[in-house]
């Protein structure tokens, strides 16, 4: 007989860890996306090269391997990370590499006439970026950022491999202790789906809020 109160408690702890990882990973990914995405548009070759190297490396290698590196190899180089830190680092850097291309694409898709208006108004490069280009580009980035965030959420399940007690880890614990597979895995299937829906909804409402007035429908 399964102890259901214990079961629910385990799952709730797991959800909290998964949410924590998703939020912190997304925050790091967002920062990396802007740093590397704008870095690829830099005037300076060295900055562009560095950004490109980061993007290609983290897109081109497995997130498993990146996580294992962060957790098992970095300590050999004298950098000890907790499982949570290693998880956030690997997830953030990996998804940030994809996000960087989203940032670059969105910035480049803003019409030349907006840049020319900035020159005619004598705005500096950074002022133009900050006040004119990025606010418009951000709106274009949002839908893809939503995709990236959902990808990140689902990728958090790999941290169970470095013994971090997220949703997937807890399901395995329950299965090992009770021998029941259907219940815990169905629970987390629904759990991930519900969290993904939450992200979709959040991004969509943010998109609605930010695009208000730009399309001329409402002010």
């Amino acid at each position: 007989m399964i102890d259901w109160s214990g079961y629910v408690g385990l799952m709730l702890q797991g959800v909290l860890v998964t949410i924590e990882l998703t939020l912190m990973g997304s925050a790091l990914a967002l920062v990396m996306a802007f740093v590397a995405g704008l870095g690829r548009l830099s005037r300076f070759f060295a900055v562009r090269a560095l950004a490109t190297a980061y993007i290609e490396f983290f897109r081109g290698t497995s997130i498993f391997v990146q996580l294992f590196w962060a957790y098992f190899v970095l300590p050999l180089l004298g950098v000890e990370l907790t499982p949570l830190q290693a998880g956030v680092l690997a997830l953030g850097l990996n998804v940030g590499a994809y996000g960087a291309e989203v940032v670059r694409g969105a910035v480049q898709s803003i019409g030349k006439e907006q840049y020319e208006a900035c020159v005619a108004l004598n705005l500096g490069r950074w002022q133009s970026m900050r006040h004119v280009i990025l606010p418009q580009a951000f709106l274009l980035m949002l839908p893809t950022f939503g995709n990236n965030a959902i990808e990140l959420l689902k990728a958090t399940s790999i941290v169970s491999l470095i013994s971090l007690a997220d949703l997937t880890f807890q399901a395995q614990v329950v299965r090992a202790q009770t021998g029941n597979t259907l219940v815990p895995f169905t629970t987390i299937l629904i759990g991930y789906f519900a969290l993904a829906m939450l992200i979709s909804w959040g991004v969509r409402s943010l998109e609605r809020r930010l695009s208000r007035g730009i399309d001329g429908v409402r002010a």
Binding site: E113, Q114, L121, Q127, H131, G213, I214
Partner: peptide, 25 residues
């Protein structure tokens, strides 16, 4: 300069379009 296609900033209201450059530059 005034452009053929206006080149207003679509994400800013009329007033902010006019005040942005004097405040920043």
């Amino acid at each position: 300069m005034v452009f053929q296609l206006f080149n207003l900033f679509p994400h800013k209201c009329v007033l902010d379009n006019v005040t942005l450059a004097p405040m920043l530059t």
